[in-house]
Computed example of a mutant assay.
Amino acid sequence: MTPTSHGEEAAAGTERVGVVGCGLMGSGIAELSALAGCDVRVAVSSRGSLAAGRSRIVASLDRAVRAERIGAATRDEALGRISFTTDLIDLADRQLVIESIAEDKAAKVELFALLDKTLEDPEAILASNTSSLSITAMASVTGRPEQVVGIHFFSPAQLIPLVEVISSLHTAESVAARAEEFVTVSLGKQAIRSTDRTGFVVNALLVPYLLAAVRMVESSFASAETIDRGMTLGCSHPVGPLKLADLIGLDVLRSVADALYDEFKEALYAPPPLLTRMVESGLLGKKAGRGFYRYG
C-alpha cells in the first residue's frame, strides 16, 4: 500500500478512491485522499467543472504550503495522485467511491444507480457525503445496498476533524467498519457513527439552533452582530450562529432545514421566510460576498 503523509498505510481495500463532484466538498475530499496516499480519480459533469475543480485543489494545496502545514514536495506528490474524468466509466476500478454532488435527492439516487452498474468490484463501497439525505434511498436503487454507507465530511473537509459515518438498515457492519477505518486511519480524522435519520447527529442539533438565530433577526428581536456576540462571549462558542450560517452557505442551510422538516414536520426545522428570501436573492453567505454580513 502507498504510505500516507502521516507515515501510515492507506486503509485496506480503499487505496483506489473515486470522488464524484469537485465543488467545495468534493475537492476537499479528493485532496485529503491524495494526501493520504490514495490513487484518486475525480469524476465531474463537464470540462468546465474539471478545470474549476483542478484549480480549487491546486489553490487549497498551495495555501497549505504557505501555512507550512505541508511541504512543496508533499503538495506535488498529492497532485500527482489525482486524475480527472468526465466519464463515470473511468471509476470502474475504484474500491471506494464517495459521491459529493449537490444536495438533490433525485440526482443522488440517479447517480447511485449508475455507479452500481459501473463499479467492477462487487466489494466496492459506495458512499455519500450528503449532510441530510436518506442513505437508504440511495442504497435502494443499487444491487449492493449492504455496500452503501454515508461518509459525511464537514466544511472545509481539509480542516474540520469530524466525519460522520452513517449506516442504513441495509449497511453491513463490515462496510461501516471499513468506512470508519478509511476515515480514521487513512485520513487521520475523528469519526462518529449515526443511524440513517435526516440530519444525522450534528445537523439535527445544529440546524434548529441556527434557524432560531435567523428568526431572532427576522423578528427584529436582535441584530446578527448582537446575537453572535452573545453566543461567542456568553457561551464561549468560537463563532456565532449567523456568521456560521454564512460560512456554511445559506442555500445549504435551507436545503438541510427543508429535509429535516419534510421528515419530522416539526416547526423548529422549518426554514424562516427571511432565510428563503435571502437564498432567492442570491445572498448565500460568505461564498457570495454577502449574507447576514458583508464580505470583501
Results as ranks from 00 to 15, higher is better:
5 S>W: 05
6 H>D: 13
6 H>G: 14
6 H>C: 09
7 G>T: 00
7 G>Y: 03
8 E>C: 14
8 E>F: 15
9 E>F: 15
9 E>R: 14
10 A>M: 08
10 A>C: 15
10 A>S: 15
10 A>N: 11
11 A>M: 05
11 A>Q: 10
11 A>R: 05
12 A>S: 14
12 A>M: 07
13 G>T: 01
13 G>P: 08
14 T>K: 03
14 T>W: 05
14 T>P: 07
14 T>F: 08
14 T>Q: 14
15 E>F: 13
15 E>Y: 14
15 E>I: 09
16 R>H: 09
16 R>S: 10
17 V>I: 13
17 V>M: 07
17 V>N: 08
18 G>W: 00
18 G>I: 04
18 G>A: 04
18 G>S: 06
18 G>E: 04
19 V>R: 10
19 V>I: 15
20 V>G: 03
20 V>C: 11
21 G>Q: 05
21 G>V: 01
21 G>L: 00
21 G>K: 03
21 G>W: 07
21 G>C: 05
22 C>S: 15
23 G>D: 15
24 L>V: 15
24 L>G: 10
24 L>F: 10
25 M>R: 03
25 M>P: 10
27 S>G: 15
28 G>Q: 05
29 I>K: 03
29 I>Y: 05
30 A>T: 07
30 A>Y: 11
30 A>S: 10
30 A>N: 08
31 E>H: 12
31 E>K: 13
32 L>N: 08
32 L>T: 02
33 S>H: 13
33 S>D: 05
34 A>V: 11
34 A>C: 13
34 A>N: 05
35 L>F: 03
35 L>N: 00
35 L>S: 00
35 L>I: 06
35 L>K: 02
35 L>H: 04
36 A>R: 01
36 A>C: 01
36 A>M: 02
38 C>R: 11
39 D>I: 10
39 D>Q: 13
39 D>F: 12
39 D>E: 13
40 V>Y: 09
40 V>N: 07
40 V>S: 12
41 R>Q: 11
41 R>A: 06
41 R>Y: 07
41 R>G: 06
41 R>S: 07
42 V>S: 11
42 V>Y: 08
42 V>H: 12
